[in-house]
Nucleic acid binder design. Structure first.
Lengths: 180, 180
DNA sequence: TTTCTCATGTAACGCGTTACATGATTAC
DNA sequence: GTAATCATGTAACGCGTTACATGAGAAA
């Protein structure tokens, strides 16, 4: 359901091909929303049927043809309606916490390994995230308000990873004290 | 895929009915993993076919019959294997951030309303979360290590909501400064 | 009398992932 | 030669939600 509006939102900023959209959903957007390319092409098809977008076919020499999608008036309307609808709080699917909640059968070393691995993964995710802040969505044409919003969104991710890192660091420390 | 192991993990602690399991996935576990009852019954069926669990039927007077599920040796083995497998980082589907990223068309008041609503939702979620920390999984029979793990998991949720609250508060403040 | 709890399930649909399928150009 | 980028799609499967379906007892 939300992917529809995510695509409409991007197309409102600028027309894109399915391939372009796909890149955005692999870039910095992926922190809060991701989508695979089959999903994108499928959703574009639905949007076409609903006449929320229209296609412009561009033939290219030496490269595959492009289908550039544009948002229609109807699409804009739907997007605006959705923008005013309050959304539910984020859903987290935290496999690592699930694992932790049943990990008491593991011996001390195995458990510590799991914890440490999670920490190092979080660390590298954080630096990766800091690194590609400047890419993708953020360098699309934007006004002052838009820029403020994008900065705020990036900050959310930052806070999230920092909280996660603080947490896992404390858990490892506390665990070491416990098993003394 | 993970639901299978979540169920096995719970059944390892104690035998349960589908209905019991369903309650856990609506309680404090739901912060990091949720499942609806059709999903649970479906997964139990699969686990039965794989012989990872077995059924004990209990007839009750004046109440519907129960099917109590027990983990088998095979189920335990599968669980242990999974417990040693490093999991990917959590996936967040953050509808509100998605909305924010396209919200620059809204006027100042509408945007502020969205932000404030998110803040109040986060606040009530936080207090709800603090409230039911003592329920559900946490009062199952547990050893020292198990209790440490559950406390750590609860702390993760706490940090998460606190970070989210800090973030939205700052965003609202910054936005008010901007639109002066 | 209406709602909640106990207790089990199916059907239909929609969302999301992985694999399959093609094919040229460019960069290492 | 091998991988990446550009560019589009389909097929199959699995995960997740909502609605449908039943039915008794207890509490408000």
């Amino acid at each position: 359901m939300s992917l529809k509006y995510a695509i409409l939102g991007l197309l409102k900023i600028s027309p894109f091909t399915g391939y372009d959209l796909s890149k955005y959903f692999k870039g910095s957007i992926s922190f809060y929303w991701s989508a695979s390319h089959p999903q994108i092409y499928r959703t574009l098809k639905t949007l076409l049927n609903e006449e929320s977008v229209k296609q412009e076919v561009v033939t290219q020499e030496d490269l595959p043809n492009k289908k550039i999608y544009h948002i229609t008036a109807k699409g804009s309307e739907e997007l605006n309606k959705w923008l005013l609808t309050p959304q539910e709080l984020p859903q987290v699917r935290h496999k690592f916490l699930l694992q932790l909640s049943f990990a008491d059968n593991l011996d001390d070393e195995q458990l510590l390994d799991l914890l440490k691995e999670y920490k190092s993964k979080t660390e590298s995710q954080l630096s990766l995230y800091k690194g590609h802040q400047s890419e993708t969505v953020e360098n699309l044409p934007a006004n002052k308000k838009q820029k403020f919003l994008w900065k705020s969104i990036l900050k959310n991710g930052l806070y999230y990873y920092e909280a996660e890192l603080k947490w896992i660091t404390e858990v490892i420390n506390d665990y070491n004290k416990l098993s003394l």
